[in-house]
Deep mutational scan, measured.
Amino acid sequence: VTLFVALYDYEARTEDDLSFHKGEKFQILNSSEGDWWEARSLTTGETGYIPSNYAAPV
Rank of each mutant, 00 (worst) to 15 (best):
S41N: 13
D35C: 14
E15A: 14
V1Q: 13
T47I: 14
L7K: 06
T2M: 13
F4P: 00
F4N: 00
S19L: 02
T44M: 02
L29V: 08
D16W: 15
S52C: 10
H21C: 13
Y49V: 07
E33L: 14
S32G: 12
P57W: 06
I50S: 00
Y10D: 00
D35P: 10
T2L: 13
T14L: 09
L29W: 07
T2I: 13
V5S: 04
G48E: 00
F20M: 10
P51V: 02
D16G: 15
G48Y: 04
A56D: 05
V58L: 14
V1S: 13
F26D: 00
D9H: 06
D17W: 13
L3V: 14
D17V: 14
Y10K: 01
Y10W: 10
L29M: 09
A6W: 02
G23T: 01
E24A: 06
F20R: 00
S52Y: 10
V1N: 13
A12F: 03
H21W: 08
Y49R: 15
A12N: 04
Y54H: 07
T14Q: 10
E11L: 10
W36M: 11
R13P: 07
T43V: 10
S19G: 07
T44E: 01
Y8A: 08
W36H: 07
R13D: 07
A55R: 02
N53Y: 12
L18T: 02
R40I: 11
G34F: 09
T47D: 04
E46R: 15
Y54N: 02
E15W: 09
N53F: 12
D35I: 10
I28M: 06
V58F: 12
R13M: 12
H21L: 12
K25F: 15
R13Y: 07
D17G: 15
P57D: 04
G45T: 03
Y10E: 00
D17I: 11
S41F: 04
A56F: 08
L18P: 01
W37S: 02
L42A: 05
Y54K: 04
S19C: 05
D9K: 04
H21F: 13
A56P: 02
F4E: 00
S31P: 12
T2E: 11
S52H: 08
S52A: 14
S41W: 02
P51G: 03
D35H: 10
I28E: 00
F26A: 00
Q27M: 14
K25M: 15
D17Q: 15
N53W: 15
N30K: 09
R13I: 11
Q27L: 15
G34P: 14
E11P: 04
A39T: 03
T14F: 15
T2A: 11
A55K: 02
S32C: 13
S31T: 14
S19T: 10
P57Y: 06
R40V: 10
F26Y: 01
S32V: 11
L3M: 10
Y8Q: 08
F4Q: 02
A56G: 08
E33K: 14
T44A: 01
F26T: 00
G23M: 02
W36K: 11
E46G: 07
G45N: 08
T44P: 01
P57H: 06
T43P: 01
D35K: 10
L18C: 01
A12E: 03
K25D: 01
L3Y: 13
F4V: 10
E15C: 13
L18Y: 04
G34E: 12
E11M: 11
S31C: 14
Y49P: 01
K25C: 13
S32A: 12
L3D: 05
S31V: 12
E46V: 11
K25G: 05
G45C: 09
T43A: 11
S19H: 07
Y10S: 02
G48F: 04
L18K: 01
P57V: 08
V58W: 13
S31A: 13
S31D: 12
L42Y: 07
S41I: 09
Y49G: 03
I50M: 04
P57E: 07
A39S: 03
A12W: 02
E24R: 01
S32Q: 11
L7C: 09
F20K: 00
E38C: 15
F20G: 09
L42G: 02
T2S: 11
L18R: 01
E11S: 10
R13V: 13
D35A: 10
G45R: 04
E11Y: 09
G45W: 07
W36R: 15
H21Q: 12
V58D: 09
G48T: 01
S31W: 14
E15F: 10
T44F: 02
P57K: 07
V1I: 13
Y10C: 04
L7E: 03
D9S: 08
D16C: 15
S52N: 06
E33N: 15
D16V: 13
W37R: 02
S52M: 10
Q27G: 02
W37E: 00
L42N: 04
P51H: 08
E38I: 15
E46S: 09
E46Q: 14
E24Q: 08
A55M: 15
P51M: 06
I50K: 01
